[in-house]
Nucleic acid binder design. Structure first.
Lengths: 193, 193
DNA sequence: TGTACATCAGTGAACGCGCGTTCACTGATGTAC
DNA sequence: TGTACATCAGTGAACGCGCGTTCACTGATGTAC
């Protein structure tokens, strides 16, 4: 093997990083294979030595993002902190480093095949992460709170970005406050169950 | 004027209807001008007699959808019914007839110029609709509940569509239940304010 | 140690294709007389 | 009432362009001797 065995893996990782950022920033359809390779410091012809197709790149980049986002959000130990981190101005301003569901959700919801399956797994993983942070209530309430919290976080971020400017900032803060209110009532309710 | 004066307006409306459905079903980038015209029963060359560009079509189709969705959701007289209607299996299964934010949110959040402004207005209009359904609490709580409810509805729908199948149906029901819980506590809280 | 060699990561030109847009035209219509 | 005409909604071929993908190649590398 004439090249260091880690070399190709490292390049591939670099392409995945570039793709993950570019897709979240500008959308899957608006980012060409050439642009991804350019961002990775390579020429576009070499792409097919690493990936079978753009579709495969999308699926792998999505899985890549899922891992990174899991690390980012997995640090938090309670649901309130988790939600505040997600619905932060930092995340609002940097979709290219943030959650793939909030950055590409509607496009990915329409996808098929491997991309769609990867997206569904991505969501399930995030739900599992949330469920682990909800300890007190019944199983049903836990499921419900995890689903509702994720829905509120994702929707809140998408809408805040859609509004933009100070209106967007305001909306983000309002969603955060709403979710905080809704989640703070969970433990009280569970004690009454 | 050699043609009935309403004729062109009717054709234009037909193109807008076709575009609005096609975009929500398959996404803006994946739907060509030719496909829209074909769905409207016309040839694609005639498009530019009605619209300056595809971008203008997108903006006008979005405004068109906003009006229709406002009529659909405006019928409801309370927030719970409104949320249940939005987070219904019917809406889940028919993005092409439903909310543009849930169908195209992430793509539109990245848009610029007229499309982005139209999208922001679309969101504001929907928030206003929601605020009118929340009468009891303080102004701050009303804003907060409207933002949180919209976030939860939009996010819930996008994620349910992303999951697909029975997992999607389940998630939709859970978001609906969560939002129902969160909203039912509002009046009680307001009486304590 | 030094050199010839095989490997294969990366290059860059080329391809077919579908897109948004343009434009010369066609033909259905209401109006003028 | 009937006919010639002007209008303009809609047609369909054509355009330049950027896309995803292919492929013959180049040249940096580790290995063999």
């Amino acid at each position: 093997m004439p090249w260091p065995k880690a070399h190709k893996k490292e390049t591939r990782e670099r392409v995945l990083d570039a793709a993950a950022a570019a897709f979240r920033e500008r959308g899957i359809d608006d980012v060409s294979v050439g642009e991804v390779m350019d961002r990775a410091g390579l020429t576009h012809g070499g792409f097919y030595a690493h990936f079978k197709s753009k579709d495969e790149l999308v699926a792998e980049a999505l899985a890549h993002v899922s891992t990174r986002t899991g690390e980012w959000l997995g640090e938090t130990r309670d649901l309130k902190t988790h939600a505040d981190k997600y619905l932060s101005p930092m995340h609002l301003a940097h979709p290219e480093k943030g959650c793939a569901i909030a950055a590409l959700g509607t496009e990915l919801a329409r996808s098929t095949g491997r991309v769609h399956r990867t997206f569904a797994v991505n969501i399930q993983t995030r739900l599992e992460l949330l469920r682990e942070l909800i300890r007190k209530p019944s199983r049903q309430k836990r499921e419900r709170a995890a689903a509702g919290a994720l829905a509120c976080m994702v929707g809140g971020m998408i809408i805040a970005r859609g509004l933009g400017g100070t209106e967007g900032d305001k909306f983000l803060a309002e969603s955060r406050a709403f979710l905080g209110d809704a989640l703070s009532e969970l433990p009280e309710r569970s004690s009454a169950d």
